[in-house]
Amino acid sequence: MASAESARAEAKRPLSPHLQIYRWTWTMAMSIFHRATAIVLYVGTVFLAFWFVSLASGPESYASAAWFFGSPIGYLLLFAYTWALMHHMLGGVRHFVWDFGQGFEPSQRFLLAKLTLVGSISLTLVIWLVALIAR
């Protein structure tokens, strides 16, 4: 009885604010993007190793891997992976700036966060345009 009451009292206690309460800011979003792209890149190394091993396994396995990466799903994966790679790279550069004690003023933080996203999208488009045109 007493424990049931205390459990109910606990349930009514106000919770500390979590993600859905905070107003999203650029710096907050890019912080989460940095970790999210890291996890995407981590999982994506399976595809990288698969590609290397298929090349080492001979023409037939390479043909099936090439078919997969050349399919619409393969292109989508590669495009998303390119963006994740570029975004995480620029996010890392941003962390280097901070490691040297620079860029902590609010205006600088927001500029760096916006440059990370604009830069990653731009670099991804440049890489794909160059790769497709050079084909």
Partner: peptide
């Protein structure tokens, strides 16, 4: 595993 498989393949 990822590193060893990739390096062996290369």
């Amino acid at each position: 595993v990822i590193g060893a498989a990739s390096l062996f393949a290369i």
